[in-house]
Every structure is written in structure tokens, then in C-alpha cells.
């Protein structure tokens, strides 16, 4: 049975793979049998995570990458294929959010940075990876979106807009690339225990407000996102494409928190 969920023989690329959700996904995929390429800007963080991945017995390649640079994305795919000879799984996970507050208070450069990182890089890297997946007869692309892609989150307006765009990118690519047997799905978490979201879960007022709309009454651990990603990357989800898997402790099954 476990074999249906196994990723043995597959090669995965995870952006933002050195920390937080990306690190958890990279580790989970390695433990499920995949060789993993992790990309992020800071070489030190990458090396540390690469060591942890190698400790699982799988191979890991760390490629310092700024996803806002087209050449860096092409280089990431080239290095992956150069080292492992194939690319089966892409996890678009690197994101940024330089602005917290009402959208009218955001600078134009903040809008550009958010869209270039959270949307344009997904678009470009998916295109590049798709060409390699075609060569091996298919693949699985997993885009990290957010429950903010569906509903308003206080102070995170631009981020929410970029995450909604990721959902539609997921659906468009799912339909257009189904003919290549490439499945494209998204994961939409609410708050996860990462450095990226620390300002949310470490601020009691924000945390309590979020929990008032979360039936399971806890935030997600990064490892739980790893399991969702392994499922979507594996043959166990072979008929699932164009879907958004919401991992939010039940929040979206009902009304948002009363204080919103």
C-alpha cells in the first residue's frame, strides 16, 4: 500500500526549500523516497537543510536561487536535470510579503515584489519544469497558495490577491497540461508554525482571532503540509488535478472569525 504513496525514483524541486513549509515538504518527499533539489536565496540555510535531507539517505542538491530572476529559474531546472537527469515534481513554495496593512497604503514596488515572487515565478518555473516533465511522460506540480487566496485576511490584502492568482494559475495549467499527464494542484494552508508566519501566531490578538475561526483550535505544523504534498506528488492522487487542497483545520467549512 505504502508504495502508492511512495516517491521512489522521482526527482522533486522545492523552491523556498530551506525553511518553513518548503523545508518540511522537501524532507517529507525525501523520506517518501524522492531525490530533492532545494532552492532559496541564502546558501547557509540551504546547506543546513540539504544535510538533513541527505541524512534520510536520499540525494539532495542545493541551488541558491532568487526566484525573481528568470535566469536563476532556468538555471535551477538545468542544474536539476544535469544532476539527476529528470524532473518529476515541482513545488512552487517561495513567497514573500513585504507589506502588512490596507492595500491603499502599499507602495508600487511592494505590489511588484509580491506579484513577481508569488505569481510570476510560479508561472515561469512551471513553464520551464513542464518541458522536462513532458520528457519523462508526466509529472506533478504543487503550488503553495493560502486560505487567503479564498477569503480576506486582515492586513494581508496584496498577499491574498497573489494567492488567489496562484489558484487560477493552478487551474489553467491543470487543463492545458493534462494532455502531457502533468497534474497541477494547489495547497491552501491557513496559519502554519513557520518563521514566515511568526508575526501571526506569535501575536496573541491575531492568534486568538484566527483560532476563533478554526474548529480544530490549533495552527498547522509544517510537517502536516509535507504529508499533503507527498500525497499530491504520488501516484495515489493520479486522478486529481486542478484541485486546491485546503489544510486549515476546518476554517473554510464555515464563517470567518466573528471579529473580521
Amino acid at each position: 500500500m505504502a508504495s502508492a504513496f511512495s516517491l521512489e525514483g522521482k526527482v522533486a524541486v522545492v523552491t523556498g526549500g530551506s525553511r518553513g513549509i518548503g523545508r518540511a515538504i522537501a524532507l517529507a518527499m525525501a523520506k517518501a523516497g524522492a531525490d530533492v533539489v532545494i532552492a532559496a536565496r541564502k546558501p547557509e540555510d540551504l546547506e543546513a537543510t540539504a544535510k538533513d535531507i541527505q541524512a534520510t539517505g536520499r540525494q539532495c542538491l542545493a541551488v541558491p536561487t532568487n526566484v525573481r530572476e528568470r535566469a536563476a529559474l532556468d538555471n535551477l531546472v538545468a542544474q536539476t536535470v544535469g544532476k539527476f537527469g529528470r524532473l518529476d515534481i515541482l513545488v512552487n513554495n517561495a513567497v514573500t510579503n513585504p507589506h502588512f496593512g490596507p492595500v491603499d497604503t502599499a507602495e508600487e514596488w511592494q505590489f511588484d515584489v509580491i506579484m513577481n515572487t508569488n505569481l510570476k515565478a510560479y508561472f515561469l518555473l512551471s513553464n520551464a519544469a513542464m518541458k522536462e516533465m513532458q520528457k519523462v511522460g508526466g509529472g506533478s506540480i504543487i503550488n503553495l497558495s493560502s486560505s487567503g487566496g479564498f477569503r480576506y485576511m486582515t492586513g494581508l490584502g496584496l498577499y491574498c490577491i497573489s494567492k488567489a492568482a496562484d489558484i487560477m494559475l493552478t487551474k489553467v495549467n491543470a487543463v492545458e497540461w493534462a494532455r502531457y499527464n502533468i497534474r497541477v494542484n494547489a495547497i491552501a494552508p491557513s496559519i502554519v508554525r513557520t518563521d514566515f508566519a511568526k508575526a501571526l501566531w506569535d501575536t496573541p490578538a491575531i492568534y486568538n482571532q484566527a483560532m476563533s475561526g478554526t474548529p480544530l483550535k490549533r495552527i498547522a505544523e509544517p510537517e502536516e503540509l509535507g504529508d499533503v504534498a507527498v500525497f499530491l506528488a504520488s501516484n495515489a492522487s493520479s486522478y486529481i488535478t486542478g484541485q486546491v487542497i485546503v489544510a486549515d483545520g476546518g476554517g473554510q467549512a464555515g464563517p470567518p472569525p466573528a471579529t473580521w
Binding site: 491543470a174 507527498v230 486522478y239 486529481i240 486542478g242 487542497i245 476554517g251 467549512a253
Partner: peptide, 18 residues
Amino acid sequence: ASDYVTGQTFGLDGGAMV
């Protein structure tokens, strides 16, 4: 593996819902 997922509907449809 799905402990944080609840109240969700999983489309299993080869992409038809899109």
C-alpha cells in the same frame, strides 16, 4: 497524514471541475 484537513471536499475528477 490528513489530520489538519477537515470540512473539505476533494474533487477527484481528472480536472473536470476546472
